[in-house]
Structures are given as C-alpha cells and as structure tokens.
C-alpha cells in the first residue's frame, strides 16, 4: 500500500517536472552565467578597448586640452625607445630566472615534502605560510633582511665568514635583480611545491616498486616515473610564472623602485612610471597594451602546448 502511494507521488512529481515551463529551462544556463559574464566584461574587456583608444591618441596630463589622434605613434615611440628595450630585456631575464628558480624549488621541495617523517610533516604546514603572506608584505620583510646597514642577511653572511664586510644588496644592479628573484621564490615557490606535491601524491606506489625491481636508480626513477606525471603541472607553472614575470610590479615598488639606475625597471614598472611620473597616459597605455599582448600571446602558446600534451598522454 505504502509502495503504491510512493510511486503515485513520484509520478505526480514527474508530471510537475514535465510541466515546468520550457523557457525557464532554456534560459537557466544564460541566467546562471550572466553575473560572472557582466562583471568580467565591465572590468576587463571594456577597459581593454578603452586602453586601445587611449593608446592611439596623444594624451599627456600636463596638456589637458590636446588629444589629437596619433595612430600608432605611441607604439612606435615605445618600441623605438632605448629604455623600453632595456626594460623588455630586464623583464625577460628576470622571467627566465624566476621560471628556472621556482620550478627547481617546487620540484625539489615537493619531493622532500612527499617523504614520511616529522620534519617533512612540519614543512608541509610551514610551506603554506609564505604562500599566505601577501606579496607586498613579503617584499617589506625582505627589504628589511636586505638592508645594507642593519639587515639580517649581511649579519648572517659576515658572521659565518662568507662575506668579509657588509654589502649593499639593493644598491648593486646585479644583486638587486637577484634579490628580487630570491624574494619572488620565497613567496611563490611554495605554491609550486604545493601543486607538485598534489600531483606526486597520486602516482601509484606500484610504479615506483616496479621501477626499483627493474633495477632503476634514484635518478632513473625520477626521470621515467615521477617526471612524466609532473609534466602537466610543470607546464601550468610555466604559464603562471611567465605571466608573473611580465606583470611584476609589487616587488619592484617595495624593494627597488626600479633601481639602482634602471637595473630593475621592468615592463610593468616602466608603464607605471610613464603614467604616474611623466603623466603620459597615451604612451603608458601603449606600453601596458604591449605587456597585455605579450602575456596573452605567450599564455595562448602554452595553452596550445598543454592541450597537445593532454592529447598524447
């Protein structure tokens, strides 16, 4: 009896489901993505078009009434500028260093974190702390560590005899660049390690056992078992770090202000300086547009790579 009643109720509900207005069902997907779509369009796509418009006009804040159309002149001046080329080269060098550093750190540290034991367990918690600390705050901490007169790094290196005397870390062009790289790795290496660790944890144990039984040494096992599993994660990190390199701004703002001289002036900082120091909106927008195009282009190439990777694996 109860069974029949239940079935009846189910039929009724089924009936209601069929009676649901078709239009509501057809509209649901659009309504559900609408809020996201609108916010994204308003805050990223509309501004991008606006930036394009700015970049083809002369627009200097100290000359507020003259905004003639100048076509691609802002772009031409940008590409032809000695300072732009220098900023581009510095950005490429910095990006190459953080990619290499962060990937090496991420892989090596994740292999350690994946081990049993208390030390690895404590490190799995500690690794989250630099990741949780906002970039500018990490930069302030390292600015104090690198301080030439009272900083911890000089004190440490002199006391263990690595350095004969205190040096100015942020006052030397090469050291200033390396300081930025080190700070970046301290802050972002942990994310790479967490992502690699998440990937390592799904590699089946049998694969390692089989590899050892087949006589594989540590390196061979890493090369033929671990690395293939890490490949997609490594590619993802490659994308993230490339973008990070091209848009690095917070670290420069806090640590070096683009100096000494222009040793750490990279593209994002260059655009910022053009806009806020020289009040040249048109040229600033052109540089910013070039950064956007470079980042987007590189990211799309990587995504294509990632896709073929997925096809073959």
């Amino acid at each position: 009896m109860a069974g029949i009643q239940e079935r009846g109720a189910a039929d009724l509900r089924l009936g209601r489901a069929r009676a649901r207005p078709r239009r509501a069902v057809a509209l649901y997907p659009y309504l559900s993505i609408l809020p996201t779509l609108l916010v994204v369009a308003l805050i990223s796509v509309y501004p991008l078009l606006f930036a394009l418009d700015l970049s083809v006009h002369r627009n200097i804040l100290t000359e507020p009434l003259a905004h003639p159309f100048v076509g691609l002149r802002n772009f031409a001046e940008t590409f032809g500028s000695y300072y732009f080329v220098r900023a581009l080269l510095t950005t490429l060098r910095f990006t190459a260093m953080i990619i290499a550093g962060t990937l090496a750190y991420g892989i090596a540290v994740s292999l350690f974190l994946n081990r049993p034991g208390r030390l690895a367990g404590a490190s799995r918690i500690a690794i989250l702390i630099p990741w949780a600390i906002p970039t500018v705050m990490a930069a302030i901490i390292w600015r104090w560590i690198f301080n030439g007169n009272y900083g911890a790094l000089n004190a440490l290196l002199v006391s263990i005899g690595v350095l004969p005397e205190y040096i100015s870390w942020l006052g030397n062009p090469l050291l200033a660049q390396l300081s930025l790289v080190l700070t970046h790795i301290w802050k972002w290496g942990p994310l790479a390690a967490i992502m690699c660790l998440a990937t390592l944890q799904v590699i089946p144990r049998d694969l390692y056992e089989a590899a050892y039984i087949d006589g594989g040494g540590g390196w061979a096992v890493f090369r033929f078992v671990t690395l293939p599993f890490l490949r997609p994660t490594i590619l993802l990190l490659l994308i993230l770090e490339t973008i990070a390199g091209f848009v690095t701004f917070d670290l420069i703002y806090v640590l070096t202000g683009g100096g000494p001289a222009d040793a750490t002036t990279m593209l994002a900082w260059f655009a910022y300086a053009e806009i806020f120091r020289f009040l040249n909106l048109g040229k600033g927008a052109a540089i910013a547009f070039v950064i956007g195009a470079l980042t987007l282009g590189l990211a799309l190439i990587y995504v294509r790579l990632l896709r073929t990777e997925e096809l073959y694996s």
Binding site: T36, L37, V40, L48, A51, T295
Partner: peptide, 24 residues
C-alpha cells in the same frame, strides 16, 4: 565562447587596464 571569454580575461595584466578602470 563565453567560457573562453571569462577565462581569457584572467590573462589580461592588471597594469594594462589600470588607467581605464580608474576612469570607469
């Protein structure tokens, strides 16, 4: 197309749209 639109927007660097967002 809408999915690609939303995801690609993430690749636009903040500095590239800073002035227009300020004006907006």
């Amino acid at each position: 197309i809408t999915y690609a639109f939303i995801l690609t927007s993430r690749l636009i660097p903040a500095i590239s749209v800073a002035i227009p967002i300020f004006v907006l």
